[in-house]
Each structure stands twice: as C-alpha cells, then as structure tokens.
C-alpha cells in the first residue's frame, strides 16, 4: 500500500487495515471503484485465488502470481465475526448508504506467513507484477 501511495495516482485513495471491518463500508461508499488487495493463500474450487484472510485448510500453492476478480455484495453475512470479507463490507455499504461501487479483489500470492518477517523474494516479484497490473487498471478506470 505504501508503494501504491508513493505513485500518487490521481483520483486514487489508499487505506490499509489489519482486518476489514464495519467502518470500511463507509469508506467504500464514497468511491466509484473499490479494489481490495491482500496476500492470498490457497486456491478456491474454481481456480481463483483463495480466501484473503487465511482460512484454515486452504494452504495449497497458488499457480498465478495474482488474481483479479470482481466482488459483489453478499446477500447475507456468512461467518460473522468482527473481521469481514469484502463481500460483507459491500453489503453493509449497500444497506446503510445505498452505494454499490464496482469492486474487485486483487489477491497476491503469498509465500511465507511468519509474523514479523519481511517479504520473500518470490513475494516481492509477485507484488511487483500485481502492482504493475493494478496501475494499468487504475489508469483505465480513472475519469
């Protein structure tokens, strides 16, 4: 996120959280396009990057450096916790503020998950590719 901020992209605001939470719905409601970005581990059944919150069990190595998928508001709130998935944040934004921004999930392949460790070389490489892609996407969607 710090690297993206340093690029000072016009019309783009950056925010970072440890976990998504209810107040992020308020933030999402203020924008036309919202991109959730996190490290990813595991693979969903459809081959897309797995959960971004490190659900237990999903630990297989991802094949792609990153995936970029559309996210839609959840019709309900599965697995309620104070930590929300992007779909739940969007659902709250829709319910409370009547806003449904175009939302995407950029899931960047993670390598090592030890607390307090920096990025591995592989993760650095994947991050660079993902950032390059994201910058291109943002240039296209900006007014």
């Amino acid at each position: 996120m710090e690297r993206l901020k340093r690029r000072r992209l016009r019309g783009v605001a950056c925010d970072a959280n440890y976990q998504l939470n209810v107040e992020d719905a308020l933030a999402c409601a203020g924008y036309d396009t919202v991109i959730f970005v996190d490290a990813a581990r595991g693979v969903d059944e459809d081959g897309a990057a797995g959960s971004v919150d490190g659900d237990a069990g999903a630990v297989r190595r991802l094949r792609k450096p990153f995936t970029f998928t559309r996210v839609r508001a959840a019709g309900s709130m599965p697995a309620m916790s104070h930590a929300l998935r992007p779909e739940a944040v969007l659902a709250i934004a829709a319910e409370l503020y009547g806003k449904t921004p175009d939302a995407r999930l950029l899931a960047i392949r993670g390598k090592c998950w030890e607390v307090g460790e920096g990025l591995s070389a592989e993760a650095e490489a994947d991050l660079a590719l993902a950032l390059e892609f994201l910058e291109g996407f943002l240039k296209e969607v900006r007014p």
Binding site: N21, V22, E23, A25, L26, S76, M77, M80, A91, I92, E95, L96
Partner: peptide
C-alpha cells in the same frame, strides 16, 4: 441467522447501525 447480523440491524434501525459504525470509526 441470515438476518441476525449488522445488516439485519440496519434494516431495522438504520440510524442505530450508522451510529455504531461511526462510534467505532
């Protein structure tokens, strides 16, 4: 359980749900 959550609260009392979020914020 599909509605027993903050979205359900918002549907019932939007002001209250907003207050909760802004207190947190």
């Amino acid at each position: 359980p599909a509605v027993r959550n903050i979205i359900g609260v918002a549907a019932l009392n939007k002001d209250l749900a907003v207050q909760g979020i802004l207190l947190r914020k």
